[in-house]
Amino acid sequence: MPGAATFILLVEDDPDISAIALMALHLDPNLTVTPMRTGADALHHLRHAPKPDLILADNNLPDMEGVALVRAIRRDMSEPPPIAFFTASVRSADIERYTAAGAVGTIAKPFDPIGLAAQVHRLLRSSFV
Rank of each mutant, 00 (worst) to 15 (best):
H44R: 10
L27V: 08
I95G: 00
A24N: 11
V129H: 14
A21Q: 10
A5I: 14
F128Q: 13
D41E: 15
A21E: 00
H26K: 14
G115P: 10
F111N: 14
I8W: 05
A42H: 05
H45R: 06
P80H: 00
L25W: 05
V104W: 04
A19D: 10
D53A: 01
P2Y: 04
L22S: 04
L54Y: 01
I17P: 00
N59S: 06
D58M: 11
A72C: 11
N60V: 05
P110T: 14
R75T: 13
F86T: 06
H121S: 15
A108K: 12
G102C: 09
R97L: 04
S89F: 05
P50L: 09
L69C: 07
H48L: 13
S78I: 12
V104L: 04
I107V: 13
F86L: 07
E12L: 10
A101Q: 04
V70K: 01
R75C: 08
Q119V: 09
P82W: 03
L123W: 02
I55S: 04
R75G: 02
P62Q: 07
D28N: 09
P52I: 08
G102K: 03
I73D: 02
E79I: 10
F7G: 01
A57L: 11
D41A: 09
S126F: 10
D63K: 00
A108L: 13
F85Q: 01
D28G: 13
S18Q: 15
D41W: 04
S127R: 09
I107R: 05
S89W: 01
G39C: 06
Q119F: 05
H26N: 07
D28C: 14
D63I: 09
T32G: 02
A57G: 08
E65T: 06
A21L: 13
F128H: 15
N60R: 13
A101L: 03
A21Y: 07
G115C: 15
L46F: 11
P50K: 03
P81C: 13
A100L: 02
T99Q: 01
P113G: 10
P29V: 14
D16T: 15
F86K: 00
L54T: 07
D41N: 10
A108E: 13
T87D: 06
N59F: 06
A103W: 00
I114L: 12
I8K: 01
V129L: 11
L69M: 15
P2G: 05
V104H: 01
T34W: 03
G39P: 04
L61D: 05
A72H: 08
M64Q: 12
F85A: 00
P110L: 06
R47L: 01
L9I: 04
E12G: 11
